[in-house]
Every structure is written in structure tokens, then in C-alpha cells.
Simulated scan of single mutants.
Amino acid sequence: MAELHADDPGITIVPHVEALAHISADVVLLTNVLHVLRPADIAEAVSCIWKLLAERKGVLIVSEIFPLLMPEQNAVPVPDHHLVMFLREVGFAVAQVSFEVAGCSAYCLAAKVKPGSPLAAEAIESAAINMWRQINAEFVANYADAGPMTSLEDQKRLLNWVFGIARIQHILQS
């Protein structure tokens, strides 16, 4: 992606969370990113993004595909309602659009900073941990209530729940 936009001065590709503190932007796009970040990384990113967008009255665009198309080593599929609640809790007003892509649900969130002071990184991290716990509880309940797995779609959902439960446990223990 960085190579595609190397000659465009209006686009900055951020290679890691720490680099967010050193950019200026009116729009921040997180596409298939949050589901691979640990709570501390989410807190750092969201804290930087909140400050950046509050200064410029910009917008955060978050898009994800759920369930994930295939298991990724460090990813947990994040259902839209959990991410909406998280962003609202940490100081954003959020609008949502959901749609279907390749047989999967996709969503796009547009978030603007609410007036007020930014939350401390510790509070954002706590909200991220709480989001992961809620997702875990939902995955465990879905897994427990799963009936016979008779189709490929059933098996994909089951794999996403099992993989998600394992990854969330790893996240919460690290």
C-alpha cells in the first residue's frame, strides 16, 4: 500500500502505531487493523487518533470484514456492535454502514471526536480489554449454542468462534 501511494503527498501510510503521534491528518482510515492490535496498542492508537482529529475536526473511518475470511495469526474478528460501543465509550460519535462482501458481513464506521477532554490511555486500554471480554463472552455463548455443523458456512462460523476465543485468551493474558 505504501508503494502505491509513495508519490501522493496527501496520503500517509503509517507503518506502526507509534508513528501516529507524528502525523497530521483530516481523515484517518483503519481498514482491517484493529482486529490485530492488543489492548495497549489500541489505546495508544486511539489516543493519538483522538488528539489528531480533535485538533483538525477530522474523521476516523474504520472498516472490517466479519467474520474474517480466513484465520489470521494475530486477529480476532470484531463484531460491529462491539466496536461501535468501544468508540462511543472512548469519546467518539459514531455512524455505521453495514453491507455484504463475498458472503461475509462488512462494516464501515465513521467517527468524529465528541467535545471534551481525551480519555487517558489507561482508560482507553481498560475499555479495549472490556471490549475483548465482551467479544469473548459472545463467542463462547455462540459456540455453546451451536447445533450440528452441516454446511461450510457453519464450519467457518465455528472456526471463527474457536479461533477468536483462543486469541482473546492470549491477548488478555499478555
Rank of each mutant, 00 (worst) to 15 (best):
W50V: 00
L119I: 00
V78H: 03
F92Q: 03
W132M: 15
L37K: 02
P115G: 08
Q173A: 15
I13W: 10
G103E: 01
W132F: 15
S105E: 15
E138C: 03
F86P: 01
M70W: 12
A95V: 08
P15K: 05
H82D: 13
Q155W: 15
V76A: 03
A102L: 15
L53A: 03
Y143V: 03
Y143W: 10
A43T: 01
I65P: 04
L159R: 07
S98C: 08
L69R: 13
L30A: 13
D41K: 13
D80G: 13
V59F: 08
P9T: 03
N136G: 05
A21S: 10
L30K: 00
Q96C: 11
I61V: 15
V33C: 07
C48I: 00
V36P: 01
I135Y: 07
V140M: 04
A25D: 09
A110D: 08
A166Y: 09
I23E: 08
Q173G: 11
L29C: 12
S105W: 12
E3V: 02
R167P: 02
A93C: 09
A123Y: 07
I42Y: 08
P118C: 04
A43V: 00
N142G: 06
A111F: 07
K114N: 12
L20V: 02
E122Y: 06
M1R: 10
A2H: 09
E89F: 04
Y143S: 09
A95R: 10
V97K: 14
A123T: 05
M1D: 12
D145Q: 14
E122G: 09
L119Q: 07
I49N: 02
Q96N: 06
N130R: 12
A2I: 00
I124G: 05
G91W: 02
H82C: 06
E122T: 07
V27W: 09
E153Y: 14
A123E: 15
P39Q: 06
V90I: 13
W132P: 02
W50D: 03
V62I: 12
H35Q: 07
S151C: 04
W161I: 00
P15G: 10
I165V: 09
S151I: 02
V17K: 03
M131N: 02
T12C: 04
L53Q: 03
I165H: 04
D7L: 07
V59D: 08
P148V: 09
I13F: 13
R133A: 10
K57G: 12
D8T: 07
V14L: 04
V14Q: 02
I135M: 05
I165Y: 05
V36H: 13
L29A: 11
Q96P: 00
L152S: 14
M149E: 13
S63C: 14
W161N: 06
D26Q: 11
T150G: 15
P79K: 01
I13N: 06
E3A: 14
D41M: 13
R38T: 08
M70H: 14
F92Y: 08
I124T: 10
E138Y: 07
S105P: 09
E18R: 10
R157G: 04
R167G: 05
A121K: 13
P148L: 10
A144K: 09
V140K: 06
L159Q: 08
A93L: 11
G91S: 01
E64V: 06
F163V: 11
M131Q: 02
L60G: 01
E125A: 07
T12R: 08
E72N: 03
Q169H: 12
E100N: 11
